[in-house]
Design a protein around this nucleic acid. Sequence first.
DNA 1: CTGTTAGCGCGTTCAG
DNA 2: CTGAACGCGCTAACAG
Lengths: 351, 351
Amino acid sequence: MTVSRVINDSGYISPDTRARVKVAIAELGYMPNALARQLRSQRTKTLALIVTDISNPFFTTIARGVEDTAKALGYAVMFCNTYESEVEELEYVRVLIQRRVDGVLLVPAAGSVDSIQLLQEHGLPVVVLDRHVRVEQVDQVRSDSEAGAHSLVRHMIGLGHRYIAVLTGPQVVSTSADRVAGYRRALTEAGLTSADEQVHFGEYNEASGYEMTVRLLATLPLATAIFATNNFIAFGAIRALREAGLTIPEDMSIAVFDDLPKGWMLDPFLTAVAQPAYEIGKRAAELMIERLAGDAPAEARTIVLPSEMITRRSTAPPRQVAAMPFQRTAPSRRKAAVLTSQPVGQTENPA
Amino acid sequence: MTVSRVINDSGYISPDTRARVKVAIAELGYMPNALARQLRSQRTKTLALIVTDISNPFFTTIARGVEDTAKALGYAVMFCNTYESEVEELEYVRVLIQRRVDGVLLVPAAGSVDSIQLLQEHGLPVVVLDRHVRVEQVDQVRSDSEAGAHSLVRHMIGLGHRYIAVLTGPQVVSTSADRVAGYRRALTEAGLTSADEQVHFGEYNEASGYEMTVRLLATLPLATAIFATNNFIAFGAIRALREAGLTIPEDMSIAVFDDLPKGWMLDPFLTAVAQPAYEIGKRAAELMIERLAGDAPAEARTIVLPSEMITRRSTAPPRQVAAMPFQRTAPSRRKAAVLTSQPVGQTENPA
DNA sequence: CTGTTAGCGCGTTCAG
DNA sequence: CTGAACGCGCTAACAG
C-alpha cells in the first residue's frame, strides 16, 4: 500500500495523496500492526530485562534506567522476575527467544551460564548486569563490589574493629563472592589472618539475614561489627540484634552494601555503599542498543562503575577498644551474647 | 508442515513421524516463531500492566501478583511506568495497541479516561487497578480506600485527637479523593465540622509530604495528628517533623495508608492500613484472562478488597488531651510550631 | 509518484 | 495420517 509510505515517511509521495491518507487514518483510527511489521523486518524493537528480585529497590531502579533509555531509543522492554531461580530463568529465556526479542539484559540467577549460551546460540545479544559470568564475548555492566566491600571493611577496621563478620548471599553469586573478597583483602591488609574471619553465606533476603545473625551471636569470639552485603540481609540482622537487646553502634557496628533510595528510610543511619543503579540500567541498555545498531566493536565490553561509601551513625568504635589500630596480641575472648527474646517494637521512637 | 502438529499436539500423527520430528527439533535447536504464530492467531498471549510509580513497593507487589498469575496461565506481561503522567500513559497505550497485546491492566494516572476509551475503541479489554474511573463497562479491582481511611481516622479520634490533618495526593486521583472522603466521614461521625478539617492535596511522593507538613506546622490550630494517604508522603512528613524537633507520637501522631512489606522497616512503628497488593494484582490478572477466554459475563465486574488496620506506636493520645471523647468547647488555639532547622540524623538510634 | 508482486513463519482448511 | 495451498499485515523491490 501507499499507506506504508505515508506512515514511514519513505519514498516519494504527492502531498495530496499523503493528506488524503492521513485523513483516512484519523477517521478509521487505524494503527499499524506491529506484529506484521516485526515479522517482516525480523526486528521486534523489544528488549527483555531479567532480574532476580523485583522487590528490591536496587533492581527497580535498574529497571527504570533500562526502560527510560530504551523507550527514548524506540524500544519496549519486557520485565521478567526469576526469584533467584535458574529454572525460572531458563524458562523465561525460552519464551523470549520464541518471542524474538532483539536482546536480553540479564541479571543471572547464579553461576550458571546455560541461559546465556542458549541465547547466544540463537543469535541474541546479551548484556549481563550487576553480576559477572565466566562467559567470553558478552557485554557486562556492574559496579565494583570488591572495592566497595573493601572500603566499608577498611572503614570499620579503622574504627578499631577486629572481629568483623560478613553476612552475604549465595557463594555462587558473583556479587556475594566479590564482596567477601573485598572483605578478606581489607582484613589481610590490616594484618589480620583467616582466623579472624567470620564469613556467613546465606541468601539475599531478610529471613536469611536474621538467621545468620542469630548464628553469629552464638559464635566466639563475638564480632563487634557486621558487614551485610545487601539491604535485606541488613534488615534481618537489625531485627535479630534488636531482639537480642543489642544497640547499634554501641554493642555492634553495622555497614551495608546498597543504599536505599533517598526518602525511603525514616532515619538514614546505616553506613553504606551506594551503587549507581539507575546508571547501571541506562548503560546496559545503551550498550545493547548500540550493538543492535551495529555500532559496537566485535569484542565484549565490560563497564565497572564506581560505588560510593556513605558514613553514617551505624558504625563506631567498638565498646572495649579505643578507636585506633589494635595490637595483635592475644584476643580477649568475649562472651557470646545471650539471646533475650524481646518483642519487636519496644525501642525508642525514631522521629 | 507436520511440525506444527507435533509442536501443538494437534491432529493425528504417527508415532514414528512424531519421533523423527522431535529429534530434528532437538538437533537444530528449533524454536517456533511466536510472532508468526501471533499474527496468524490474532492473539499475542501478552498482557500489559501500566503503573504510575514502579518505585513504590505497593506497585511492585501488584506487579508480582500479575506476573505470577499471568505466567501460570501462559501469558507474558509488559510493564509500563508512567511516572503519574497522562501523556506518558497515552503514549504507552498507543504502543500497546500497535503491539496487539491481548489486554491492558491499568493504574490510571489521573481522572482522565482517554486511554481507556482508546483501548476500548480498539477492542482491547481493560482492567482498572487500585483507582477507579467513571467509565462504564470496565472491570475494576481495588481495595477500600474510603473504609481504610475511615478506620484510621476514627482510631485517632478515639485517642482524643480533634485536629487531624490529612496529607494526600492529587485531588483528581480517586484513591486520594476516597481517602479524604473516609477522613471526612470519620470527622462528621464524631460531631466535628468542616471547620475542624485540614486537607492538604499534593503529590504521592516524599518531597510533597515534606512540603505539606511544613505548611501544616505553620497552620493554626496546630494539628495533633497526621493522616498520610501514602507511604512516601508519610516519609516526607516524618522528615519534616524531625527537622522541626517534634517527636512521634508525643508531639504528633501519624497514621498512614499503605504498609511496607515485612522486613522492610528497620523498626515497624507506623500505624497503618495494609492493602492486599499481591492479591489485587492476582485478581486483576484473573479477571482479564477470564474475559479473554470468553468466560466472563458481559457486564463489568468490580472487586473491592478489604484492607486491614495495624495499630503501632506512631499513634497515641495528644499531649494536652486525655484519651477520651473531647468536649465540643471553644478550641484552645495552640501555638504553631516553630521550625527549627535541625539536621537530619541527629536522633536516637533505632536499633 | 503509485500500484503490484512476493515472502516473513505460522496454522487452518482441504486433498490426497 | 501427511502435504499443499492460502492468508494473517506489512514492506523491499520492482514495474508502470
